[in-house]
């Protein structure tokens, strides 16, 4: 087989140059800069700096507070991913079966997606408001005093609830289109073999949804890790206090609020590594385990 290729070396480089320049300027240069400044402690105005080697990383990993934030982030991400995926799946399966009023029903489920995370956060603040939020009053009926911004676990619960609510629609849309792409003939064949609806779902539908589900899993993990920033900022009202926070929010708190450039660069580098690991995992699993129809 003959490989198609360029005879001249400079032509592909010239054609790629605009793209490479954009990636270089907007992605690699800042990333390299962050890696460099993670080894320094620097005066924010840029007058003085000290090379501290791995000092910033050592400080982070020996800080009980950073580990606590990391543990919260893992728990938060796991919960949000699990809840928003499973609720969306149930909704999609049910919506797939509706015959009348399908459009209205589906549109109603989807439009929450139009709510930007910070706005979702503000809605959360209103719903869970300490004095007279509807959710707070509802819980008070059951004798539970819900205190947003005061009790660590109450605030965490509100964050999980808002993030889940905000992300169900995306999952719903993907699951629904995944369900609709399952060939009718497969479904009918299954119907003959197995009379139990649940059995058919786990044996046939769910494996066929696996590529969608896996794709959504990655999307949800990155959402919970990175995109919940605005929501968290709104819920804690810019005052971290004794509230829970995620690793990304801590980068903001230390870097932008506290002007600790070295420390927050080190935190960013850790997050970059995390994204790298996630990406490698995604491609490996996709290649080996997930079969696209």
């Amino acid at each position: 087989m003959k490989r198609a290729g360029f005879n001249l070396l400079w032509l592909p480089i010239v054609l790629l140059a605009p793209q490479l320049v954009i990636i270089g300027v907007f992605f690699y240069w800042p990333a390299l800069y962050a890696i460099r400044s993670s080894f320094y402690l620097e005066d924010p105005f840029g007058f003085g700096s000290t090379f501290v080697g791995a000092g910033n990383y050592i400080d982070l990993f020996s800080s009980a507070q950073y580990l606590k934030v990391a543990v919260f982030t893992v728990g938060f991400t796991g919960l949000v991913t699990f809840l928003s995926l499973s609720i969306a799946l149930v909704l999609a399966v049910k919506a797939d079966k509706i015959i009348r009023g399908t459009r209205v029903y589906r549109t109603l489920l989807m439009w929450v997606y139009a709510v930007a995370p910070p706005v979702a956060g503000f809605i959360g603040v209103m719903i869970f408001y300490q004095g007279n939020g509807p959710m707070t009053e509802l819980l008070a009926l059951f004798g539970y005093e819900f205190r947003l911004g005061v009790n660590y676990y109450d605030t965490a619960a509100a964050m999980v609830a808002v993030a889940t609510w905000n992300h169900i629609p995306v999952n719903f849309i993907f699951f629904l289109s995944g369900l609709q792409s399952i060939p009718q003939s497969v479904k009918e064949a299954a119907m003959i073999d197995n009379r139990s609806g649940a059995g058919r779902f786990w044996d046939i539908t769910f494996p066929l949804l696996a590529p969608t589900a896996f794709f959504l899993l990655i999307i949800n993990i990155t959402y919970a890790l990175f995109d919940t920033f605005g929501m968290i900022d709104a819920l804690v009202k810019g005052e971290p206090g004794n509230n829970p926070m995620t690793l990304v929010y801590k980068v903001y708190v230390d870097g932008f609020r506290g002007n600790d450039l070295g420390g927050s660069s080190a935190q960013s580098v850790i997050l970059m590594v995390l994204v790298l690991v996630l990406t490698v995992f995604q491609f490996r699993v996709m290649d080996r385990r997930i079969h696209y129809t």
Binding site: V150, R257, G258, N259
Partner: peptide, 21 residues
């Protein structure tokens, strides 16, 4: 220096005192 963060540490620990953590 880094007093914004020191205040954040105080707020965090004071909150934990008051909630009994």
């Amino acid at each position: 220096g880094f007093y914004v963060q020191i205040r954040d540490v105080m707020n965090r620990e004071y909150g934990r005192i008051l909630t009994g953590e």
